[in-house]
Design a protein around this nucleic acid. Structure first.
Lengths: 223, 223
DNA sequence: CGATATTGTCAACGCTGCGTCGACAATTAT
DNA sequence: ATAATTGTCGACGCAGCGTTGACAATATCG
């Protein structure tokens, strides 16, 4: 980093351009999917030429990746906030998690649609997606094990397996619902239905969790 | 249809070529995904030139579509057979359905991987997939409603919504498990875990449907 | 049997989109 | 001023797609 010998600003400069590209891409991806958008489209929409685009990003995929990265961060914070607001009762907590899920998917249908599609083509996207999913699964599994240890949930399949199924279900169902394609529950009942499956799978009809307190979920704190 | 004025056979002819293309494509798709395989790859593998390929198929997508069509037919028959073998007990029936699901996915990972990827790009593939999924959901919903009417399953979310969630879960979880990517339950426990979620969601812990033999489930949940 | 419709085959073309190279502008440090 | 640095883009080469037009090969009809 030989900081700053080059020019600083004629009209626009580095970060602005990068921002413009990201914004342009996000705008375009709201309508079409990644493979329907050419690098040239993005470049033009950002007011630059194609070679210049490559000065800032390695390619389309890299842009999508950056966009997704941002979404992941926002989503995580959103969920943590919701979880904190839900307090210590497990039941509202489960609901909060699923609602946060749904919010993220709904707010980013375009990106998620492209992400799903690009998972097959771009190693970067695939890895990000897998990493995020894996972490989600781990956290869910931990929560399930906690409920079992507490005696609120009966034993059943390995918590990790159960968690994977439930998380992947959310992923898929929300994708179907948000992209408007596929048979999927109506938007309003969606969260309720998902929650019902989660609770059915986790508690299997044992009288569902009373507001037992204890150090169950994570406590996020910022500010 | 002015049937058959043209030549009939110099060396190979119509159907054989079409078959060769399908076979070649299937072989190639076992390793790489559709967009990693060029039309030229398929053509060469089938022993013809690219233009000739276009004589038989509209493009890559059409080939995938044909292959998927075959898989769908086979899968449906497989499932129906399994269902018949399961008899009238609902519990083995649910298991049979999920096992059939798993068998299909496992036997066709390559195709399914490509199908997932192509769902975003090819309208034909998307429509086929949606049609099949929708029918699966309908059938599942009907079965759930039957169990509810019988009093074996308690009321809950709309059967159609529940069915959609469960079917999509299978789809996604099996895809993850079979393509070897993503966090997913180990292959052996997979069906058990999926089944547990289905039963939990459908019966919600009501004493589960009377099964005459306890062969398949070791643990009874009523104490 | 030759004339002709039909089916099959492919070399060569044009197109779109990707990624890169090399020349050139603008700006700042020395 | 000179040089270093950061941007910018015209123009290239490449890969894959889909089509065209000419050319077999074969079946059918007269």
């Amino acid at each position: 980093m030989k900081t700053g010998r080059g020019r600083r600003r004629q009209r626009v400069s580095g970060d602005e351009r990068e921002g413009a590209i990201l914004a342009a891409a996000e705008r375009l991806l709201a309508e079409r999917t990644l493979h329907e958008v050419s690098v040239d489209d993005i470049a033009r929409a950002a007011g630059i030429s194609r070679p210049t685009f490559y000065f800032y990003f390695e390619g389309k995929d890299a842009v999508l990746l950056a966009l997704l990265d941002r979404v992941v961060t926002e989503a995580r914070r959103d969920r943590d906030d919701a979880l904190e607001a839900a307090g210590d009762d497990p039941l509202p907590a489960w609901r909060a998690v699923i609602e946060a899920f749904a919010r993220t998917w709904r707010a980013n249908r375009g990106l998620i649609r492209s992400a799903e599609e690009a998972r097959g083509a771009s190693a970067g996207v695939r890895e990000l997606w897998e990493r995020v999913t894996a972490q989600l699964v781990d956290e869910t599994a931990a929560a399930i094990e906690l409920e079992r240890a507490r005696g609120a949930a009966p034993p059943g399949p390995p918590a990790a397996d159960l968690a994977a199924c439930l998380v992947l279900m959310n992923e898929r169902v929300l994708a179907s619902a948000c992209t408007g394609l596929q048979p999927a529950p109506a938007a309003d009942g969606l969260v309720d239905t998902l929650l019902a499956v989660w609770l059915g799978a986790i508690y299997q009809g044992s009288a569902q969790p009373a507001a037992r307190r204890g150090k169950d979920s994570r406590r996020r704190r910022r500010s």
